[in-house]
Design a protein around this nucleic acid. Structure first.
Lengths: 99, 99
DNA sequence: TCTATATTTCCATTATAATCGAAATGTTTT
DNA sequence: AAAACATTTCGATTATAATGGAAATATAGA
């Protein structure tokens, strides 16, 4: 993962509502949830939810797919893992690998 | 890890200089690096570096210890791992554990 | 095609964060 | 106790992000 992408992802997660949304989608698996469902679930206005979903999508942390009238959002596990690997990369390598 | 702590940690990491600093300290292991060394290494003014180190410290991502005249900063691996676990907690549990 | 439904964009308002020179604080050495 | 060194705090400036109602866009079903 590139650094600019990592900063974008971390910025997306560094906000209480978006962290809640992401963690719920992480639990939900590939089934995901519709934008309106998420809006109802968290009691957030649709415009606010849409803004947050866009931030998470632009960061690559979640994906969007249309299903009939709804748009279903789901966690992007590959990018989530890439972000985590970026954070711990070369852990303690300058200390002889001893952590 | 509590959610408010997670948001604080992610906010701390969601900034290019601080992400660089943290990742360097992750590589350095418990030996760590002095504030002034970090300031020289990244070419940042001492006041700016101090501000960023405080943010990372308040978030619990790094620790500070005095060694003679210098203050040595080092990654807090326990809290780093706690943050990662918080992000992936109950992954896919609402989808029968299938990711 | 017309209506209902789902989501997004627009935009104005409000709130929060980053930057860094200069001054202040704390520590060691002579 | 004074000088030298290391880091932090102060404070003014500049930049970026969150919020949500109303209007716009897009799809589905009668």
């Amino acid at each position: 993962m590139e650094k600019s992408n990592a900063v974008k992802s971390l910025t997306a997660l560094a906000q209480e509502s978006r962290l809640d949304i992401f963690r719920l989608l992480v639990r939900k698996g590939k089934t995901g949830m519709a934008a309106g469902e998420l809006s109802d679930y968290f009691g957030l206005p649709k415009a606010t939810m849409s803004f947050h979903l866009k931030e998470l999508t632009n960061a690559g942390l979640i994906t969007a797919r249309r299903k009939s009238r709804s748009i279903i959002y789901a966690a992007n596990y590959d990018n989530m893992n890439a972000l985590i690997n970026f954070l711990v990369e070369n852990c303690c390598s300058d200390n002889g690998g001893k952590c």
